[in-house]
Amino acid sequence: MRVEYINPFYQATIDVFRVMLSLEPTRGTLRAVEELVPVSEANVGIGVTGDLRGSLLYSFPASMALEMVRIMSGMEMTKLDAFVTSALSEVANIISGNALTYLARNSLTCDISPPQAFVGSKGAMAMSTEKAIVLPLITDIGTLEISISLHAKHVE
């Protein structure tokens, strides 16, 4: 797992949060973990295939998730229902797609699978058990943590 795979996700989150939420995320301290485990209530998992393979896990605290969707929709949100989790899935999908565009500039061509949202740790998919790096993105409304487990198709 190379650290240079992380920066595209940071750049993509800044771009997407700026446009969609008028928020400016700052980067917290990276940490390595042994496997992808949800750290907050609202989660979105995305698989990656191609030159890099692995999984991404977006973990949003419930209050942050509800506030994000309130900013986008202009409506108060009170529960993590299908509307809220679908909106989060789309945001995670857009960030991932943009991050892959940045990676493609380094000649790494990848595809993503449709996002899978789940609340809590229940229903967590069997994701990569390989090591991951957690990228915390701190905003005024909470901290999103993106766990990134990507590995080159061939030996790195």
Binding site: V19, S86, E90, I94
Partner: peptide, 22 residues
């Protein structure tokens, strides 16, 4: 189906914001 419509409306919302906003 209510859940499918919720998913669709969320998709349209995020698409519209991102498309018009960028």
């Amino acid at each position: 189906n209510e859940e499918k419509v919720q998913e669709f409306s969320a998709k349209v919302m995020t698409w519209l914001i991102m498309h018009v906003g960028r």
